[in-house]
């Protein structure tokens, strides 16, 4: 079923706050084959953890299967680096939606903010949903 056009402009509830811990950052870095040293820089792609949490909540709210989603584009703009000790929340909005060849191309923007409500980074993602031709 194609995704409903009325989604455009909608903002979804903020994700539960997540504390950036050394353990989480070390596991993330290690999975990329890198080493995280205490006090070192957090990998620049780490905010995807927050952005992805927001994407999954959005997909679940709209009954969209995750396995039908392919990540088409991701761009981060950082106000400042993420640091261990940050408590971050992502708020996702749907900014665009178009259908191409039976696929929904969903444009999203997630604002990732810290415990003081200050913007840490903005993640813009394009999600390609391949369920557009299903009749169910």
């Amino acid at each position: 079923m194609p995704v409903d056009q009325s989604l455009v402009g909608r903002e979804f509830p903020p994700t539960a706050p997540l504390e950036v811990t050394e353990e989480r950052v070390a596991a993330f870095a290690a999975s990329l084959g890198a080493r995280y040293d205490a006090g070192g820089a957090v990998p620049p792609t780490y905010p995807i953890v927050l952005a992805f949490d927001a994407m999954q909540a959005f997909l679940a709210a709209e009954d969209i299967d995750l396995f039908r989603i392919v990540h088409g584009e991701q761009r981060f703009a950082y106000e400042r680096p993420v640091r261990v000790g940050d408590v971050l929340t992502a708020t996702l909005g749907v900014v665009s939606l178009r259908q191409i060849g039976g696929a929904d191309i969903i444009g999203t923007s997630s604002a990732i903010t810290d415990g003081d409500g200050a913007l840490v980074c903005t993640g813009r993602a394009t999600l390609v949903h391949s369920g557009g031709q299903e009749t169910s």
Binding site: L32, G33, A34, G40, A41, P43, P44, T45, V70, H71, G72, E73, Q74, R75, F76, A77, Y78, P81, R124, T126
Partner: peptide
Amino acid sequence: TLGLVGRAVEEWTGGAEVVELGCKF
């Protein structure tokens, strides 16, 4: 894959602060 790009950038620049990072897949 973009995480690997982040690794390469960090190594090349000696850990310079990243202000933008992105791509199409």
